[in-house]
Design a protein around this nucleic acid. Sequence first.
DNA 1: TCAACGTTTCATCTTTCGTTGAAATGACAT
DNA 2: ATGTCATTTCAACGAAAGATGAAACGTTGA
Lengths: 121, 121
Amino acid sequence: MDERAALAGFSAISHQDRLRIVRMLIVAGADGMAAGAIASALGEALPSRISFHLKELDHAGLIVSRRDGKSIIYSADFPALSDLVAFLMHDCCQGHCAYCDKAIALFAKCSGRPTGPVRCD
Amino acid sequence: MDERAALAGFSAISHQDRLRIVRMLIVAGADGMAAGAIASALGEALPSRISFHLKELDHAGLIVSRRDGKSIIYSADFPALSDLVAFLMHDCCQGHCAYCDKAIALFAKCSGRPTGPVRCD
DNA sequence: TCAACGTTTCATCTTTCGTTGAAATGACAT
DNA sequence: ATGTCATTTCAACGAAAGATGAAACGTTGA
């Protein structure tokens, strides 16, 4: 996670619909949700708009997609989200890296896959 | 931390200079940094631009300011940053709230003050 | 009170983002 | 192959954000 990726990630979730999508996909977990299901969960939004938002989140690396028949299933990229948080709070412990390491380890636990070590540089 | 505040927070750090300022202030800790020091650390940026960015971060609730003589000292609002992270990852544990509680507790430890409990709704 | 310093406010212009609806794509069933 | 369904792409317009420099503000020390 470098600065460019972090900016892309934060920009992606700086929009009401996109933030709701990410939070919804975090709840959905590994199963994910079809684009149509996401659109109807969001209410009045047009399919083209949801598609655009999903593309934005995908380009930012925060979600992943897979095709299942006619539907395209989106799910949260948990390691990427953990990395995004870690980038922002990289030195919240002011040098006492053990705190951040533990916090990120917990986020990694949620994702089911381990993330890299936190750099307190 | 509600959705409106979270969106304001993420929007605020969706800009290179502002993300760098927040990360710099996280490293600076409780001492904070003067606006001028922040501006010179950022290099070529104009003072008026830095002032605008600091105002944006302040309005988003991510940093706090205090006057010290001629200078205005800015510092990170650690509880607000922890809450922002908690809002995004509110259900990263998919219902197993203990994970999130621990993670947020660790971020709260970094801030020196406790944050509220994580809502897994 | 005056001058110097650090910081902020304002007006302006340029650039980027958000939204919309129509048309196109890809996959499945008949 | 044809129709249908789910989703995406595209072009166009309006709205919002970013950058800049000049002027104003508040604080300090002479």
